[in-house]
Design a protein around this nucleic acid. Structure first.
Length: 209
DNA sequence: CATTTGATGTTCT
DNA sequence: GAACATCAAATGC
């Protein structure tokens, strides 16, 4: 896979606009999250862990019951937009908006394996002690590695030169994808039990619980 | 090893 | 003012 391959294989609007956010979350495993910075250049991570969030029937979702706020407004746009927000006052978390306009579903990208631009990723990480395979082993680390912050909130990844997702090189076998409850959403009551965290079995980059 | 704690700033009530 | 889709260093065995 060359830099040109990642640019050529960008996922289109239709791919993101499908209505089943859990299915999209599973199919994002194996896809390539790509950023291109004017100075630092191309960095690419292979997505190995995601979480689905749904606008209705999911108390863990920022847009639960379709409630629009200043923060979550991006979730109401067409699938394919980037929703980036600040978590715990410290970490920027990156989500892929899915479904059509006014259906606020999104997929949190929780972990990537470094694929391209690894020296840049190491430089961007605040902690230089981390093992290379685990540079992106958590949602706050994914954004550090790839240079994603709230300046990219609202970017349309279908045609942005700065941020996009490329389709998997080859499909991941279904039996390699595990589905378990999401992390850090205990406040959501019974919805915290939904198995909407999905990850690639055996990946060294899966986040710790 | 496992578990706890401190850092940090927005958002929403 | 409380809560929060986290991380790494410090502490306890």
């Amino acid at each position: 896979m060359t830099p040109d391959d990642f640019r050529k294989n960008r996922l289109p609007r239709k791919w993101f606009e499908r209505d089943d956010v859990v299915k999209v979350a599973k199919e994002l495993v194996g896809a390539y999250l790509c950023t291109d910075h004017p100075k630092e250049g191309l960095t690419v991570g292979r997505i190995v862990e995601t979480e689905a969030y749904r606008g209705w029937g999911d108390k863990a979702c920022h847009a639960n019951e379709g409630k629009k706020t200043a923060r979550n407004e991006i979730m109401f746009r067409e699938g394919g937009h980037a929703y980036v927000y600040l978590c715990y006052g410290i970490h920027e978390l990156f989500n892929v908006v899915t479904h059509r306009k006014d259906h606020p579903n999104a997929v949190l990208i929780r972990a990537i394996e470094p694929v391209f631009g690894v020296t840049t990723m190491v430089k961007r990480r605040y902690s230089p002690r981390a093992k290379e395979s685990r540079l992106g082993a958590g949602p706050g680390l994914v954004t550090q590695c790839l240079g994603i912050d709230r300046k990219l909130n609202g970017v349309d990844m279908v045609d942005s030169p700065d941020l996009w997702i490329a389709k998997p090189n080859r499909p991941i076998p279904k039996n390699k994808i595990k589905a378990v409850p999401r992390v850090g959403v205990d406040y959501a009551g019974e919805d915290a039990l939904l198995p909407w965290r999905v990850y690639l079995e055996d990946s060294p980059a899966v986040s710790r619980k």
